[in-house]
Amino acid sequence: MLNSLARLGQVGIGILERLGRGHLLLLGICRGLPDLFPRPGLLTKQIYSVGVLSILIISVSGLFVGMVLGLQGYYILSQFGAEQTLGVMVAASLVRELGPVVAALLFAGRAGSALTAEIGLMKATEQLSGLEMMAVDPIRRVLTPRFFAGFISMPLLAALFSALGIIGGYFVGVGLLGVDDGAFWAQMQAKIDLHEDVFNGAIKSVVFGIVCTWIALFQGFDAIPTSEGVSRATTRTVVHSSLAVLGLDFILTALMFGD
């Protein structure tokens, strides 16, 4: 009995310690921001590996999600004779929810896991220690550019996802199923609000970008420096990021749209 209580305590303390280390890391990362301005090249390189390399998966998924939404939405809405509002349905679900959330989940799987593996391997091969002994702070030089690359890339990727999704929905709805072109856009424009929908969606994606990149970097930096440790850290990145994104999405949605 006492033993299991003690074990529970250990688990709790372990979690608190990790949280503490994570926040300290975040603080260190943000302190490195001034170092980034004289060297925009570092950031460009990371935006390339975090953002540009994720474009393909994000745009293809966005297009298909939009097409599926168009198809499903059409069948349901046509039962009420409301297929004119297909545009609203596709755009609202993409801009408010699916864009930021699915893009973030894909981002965690594509870029987050790659970040964790990269940082973890740098740790395992003593590259981070090596930097430290060269009097270079690995947090500032290695983690900070990656963090801000994620911070910048995520909203752009989410916007791409939503925009391509809407175009996909347009192709299916207007192109294949014969919804009226004008009604599709007009209803959408009448109902989707710039502040309420588009900006709130963008805020979501910024939050998700910060959280996903942070989790990925922390898991890599905190990984046990063996091949097994790195592989487990990579798995944890994807699991934790996905849970964090979905949980935060609920909280943010409640705050933004809950009145």
């Binding site: 474009i55 755009a91 801009v95 890339s153 909203p155 752009l156 990727l157 916007a159 791409l160 939503s162 925009a163 391509l164 809407i166 856009w185 959408m188 424009q189 009448a190 989707i192 609000d193 710039l194 929908d197 588009v198 963008a202």
Partner: peptide
């Protein structure tokens, strides 16, 4: 491309 997408969402989708 990302900024164009934002612009698209702002102008075309939400008017």
């Amino acid at each position: 491309a990302g900024l164009v997408a934002f612009f698209f969402l702002a102008m075309q989708v939400s008017n």
